[in-house]
């Protein structure tokens, strides 16, 4: 464990909690892409099956349960509890165009052709593009609530911190996982446009609105 990975995990946890609280407190999931949240639930489910097979640490196990629990609670709130506030007309990204090719890629490019490893690889690839429906929805509505931009900021920051974690681990431990690194770079690059808008607008107190 190093400072980049710890702050990365805490940033990820912060993002997940911010979104959960936003929906719970405002009793509304306006502006939130349910499709992205389903993809995240799928990412955690396929990645954390090793909860059943191996124990790494209390921290590792408890964080995995928290992530999975929050992900499903968020999906439940969007599609059941606060369904009336779900903006399905703007959440129209064709996720099947993501899931199917990535499923194929996970079979072709992985570290080990075993079920758990292929599912882990699928999860890594899927996470790198899981935010696309959310970013697509914001581009369609042309704006995002400020609390949603904070959610996206911490979510994007977490993988950027993981990139630093992998540099640290390569230098000090000689450890590197090319699949996670390449997917992590793609994932972080997808947030660059948002990061620019976040820093130049939201941090200056303006509302995040895209040129419609």
């Amino acid at each position: 464990m190093n400072i980049f990975r710890l702050t990365g995990d805490l940033s990820h946890l912060a993002a997940i909690i911010i979104l959960l609280l936003k929906i719970w407190k405002t009793r509304s999931c306006a502006g939130i892409s349910g499709k992205s949240q389903i993809l995240f639930a799928l990412v955690f489910t396929t990645r954390y099956l090793d909860l059943l097979t191996s124990f790494i640490s209390l921290y590792n196990t408890s964080m995995k349960f928290i992530y999975i629990g929050c992900a499903y609670a968020t999906v439940y709130m969007i599609y059941a509890k606060f369904k009336a506030t779900y903006d399905g007309n703007h959440d129209t990204f064709r996720v099947e165009f993501l899931v199917v090719p990535i499923g194929g890629l996970a079979f072709l490019v992985n570290h080990d052709f075993s079920p758990l490893e292929i599912l882990w690889t699928f999860s890594i690839y899927l996470e790198s593009v899981a935010i696309l429906p959310q970013l697509f929805m914001i581009s369609k509505t042309g704006e995002a609530e400020t609390i949603t931009t904070h959610y996206l900021f911490f979510l994007g920051l977490y993988r950027a911190l993981y990139l630093m974690n992998w540099i640290w681990r390569f230098y000090f431990e000689g450890f590197f996982d090319m699949i996670a690194i390449v997917a992590g770079v793609v994932q972080t690059i997808l947030y660059c446009d948002f990061f620019y808008l976040y820093v130049t607008k939201v941090l200056k107190g303006k509302k995040l609105s895209l040129p419609a």
Partner: peptide, 10 residues
């Protein structure tokens, strides 16, 4: 190989 198989990161 071994260290990749057991993924210790979240």
């Amino acid at each position: 190989k071994a260290d990749e198989a057991t993924h210790d990161e979240l």
